[in-house]
Design a protein around this nucleic acid. Structure first.
Length: 402
DNA sequence: CGAGATTCATGTGAAGTATACCTTTAGGCTTAA
DNA sequence: AAGCCTAAAGGTATACTTCACATGAATCTCGTA
């Protein structure tokens, strides 16, 4: 009865949001603030497409939440409407390379691209060459300019190397009708330094750097968006500046600032408050991190979870010197496997698993040499204790541990 | 005392294996003319 | 005879294993001052 009461109230009660979607990361605002120059530059580079000429490949750097993806999308949209009106064949393909199972191998990446042409590619079974062929054909079928946006391209290269990109940049030489333009987006400024020089030079025929927003700019953005997104007068004085300050601390991540605000309002709503204070912001910050980590963890395979569980268990035992080595992890992991009736992976594999968790940012794992005492990964946990406890109980449930 | 040589515990690359899934091909059966 | 379904054959990607070699600083060794 409490539940029905709650739900009843929920309907009656006015939402604190006017339009929540405006604060969600998928939202594309009509106007992007403080990015005019960048958008103009993108437009300049891509404009030749409107004359059926191949635009130079473009490479965009900038920290997370500096508006890269947004600006690209905005530019694309404008070009597209224009192209549509004039009947110019331009096609945009956007792929986020970060998504696991979408673009973490060469095959999967090319398959994913090809699917954007309406072809269906099986998840496995075809030779990679064949997938390339299908891609060529689909691409070259008609006279068109295709602009391929690879977001978080650094993640891709980190995983599978730069050969794919090389292949993609070279495709143009074999195309009769169509032309392909690559637009790479990277969070990692140093990324290009580790590229094969050939790849680097062809990928970044043009380069563009997105500076991070400063606290004031983030405040601007927050103000404008919150005006349309949430009810008037529910933000306590100082909430927006603090929110901006939080985000600016994290290298000016506007996306994070918006998320922070949205989650804070959600929390307030759930608590039945009518004012958002900085307290909600703090809670929101915690919740976001928690959700991010929990989300990653729950979607991992069992074996991975067990490895992580071992790490957390060891971390708890070692409060003082919270450094853990691969060998210990593997030992405990094997023990746990026996308990849960799981065939343990080899140490070789576990080594890779640990490296993957590092890449995901859930743990810190650094390869060190202990001199006479060998070589290992030095693993430490980055999450805080309350979150760890949460993760552990969650994993215990998922793995049916005692 | 200091320069090399040793050593340890794993990192790491390459090649091999199991599994899941794909396409192609060849029968075998059904169906319609 | 044409069409459709099924099963076998032949092929691939992926996750993982096996094998073998690479690492790199603490420690040891041994010649020398």
């Amino acid at each position: 009865m409490d539940v029905s009461n709650f739900l009843e109230n929920f309907i009656r009660k006015e939402s604190l949001f006017k339009n929540k979607s405006i604060l969600q990361s998928s939202y594309n605002p009509d106007e992007i603030m403080h990015r005019d120059e960048q958008i103009n530059n993108i437009a300049k580079v891509l404009a030749p497409a409107l004359r059926q000429e191949r635009p130079s490949n473009l490479f965009i750097y900038g920290k997370t939440g500096s508006g890269k993806t947004l600006s690209v999308h905005a530019t694309i949209k404008q070009i597209q409407t224009l192209a549509q009106r004039e009947g110019i064949p331009i096609k945009f393909i956007y792929i986020n390379c970060k998504l696991k199972k979408v673009a973490d191998t060469e095959y999967r990446l090319v398959a994913e691209i090809t699917r954007h042409f309406g072809k269906s590619i099986p998840p496995t079974g075809l030779p990679t060459d064949e997938v390339y062929n299908i891609f060529y054909k689909a691409l070259d079928q008609e006279k068109q300019t295709v602009i391929l946006v690879l977001d978080e391209i650094d993640q891709l290269v980190k995983k599978i190397g730069d050969e794919v990109i090389y292949n993609l940049t070279r495709i143009n030489t074999e195309l009769k009708n169509a032309q392909l333009c690559l637009l790479g987006i990277s969070n990692d400024i140093m990324f290009a330094d580790n590229l094969d020089p050939r790849v680097k030079s062809s990928l970044s025929e043009e380069e563009l750097v997105f500076p991070s927003y400063n606290a004031l700019q983030i405040q601007d953005i927050l103000k404008v968006r919150s005006q349309d997104a949430i009810k008037d007068g529910i933000l306590e004085e100082g909430v927006i500046p603090k929110c901006a300050a939080y985000a600016a601390r994290e290298h000016g991540d506007a996306r994070r600032a918006l998320e922070l605000l949205r989650v804070a309002v959600e929390l307030a709503e759930r608590k039945g408050l009518v004012k958002i204070t900085t307290k909600e912001l703090d809670e929101a910050e915690e919740k976001i991190e928690k959700d991010r980590v929990l989300d990653i963890i729950t979607t991992q395979p069992k074996q991975f979870q067990l490895v992580l569980y071992s790490i957390l268990l060891l971390y708890d035992q070692r409060k003082q010197q919270n450094i853990i080595f691969t060998g210990e992890i593997y030992l405990l992991y094997k023990e746990l496997c026996a308990k849960v009736n799981l065939r343990p992976l080899t140490q070789r594999r576990v080594s890779d698993v640990i490296a993957e968790f590092d890449l995901l940012g859930i743990i810190n794992a650094k390869v060190i040499s202990k001199g006479r005492y060998g070589r290992t990964r030095e693993v430490s946990v980055v999450t805080n204790d309350t979150l760890n406890a949460k993760i552990k109980s969650l994993l215990e449930g998922a793995l049916q541990l005692g």
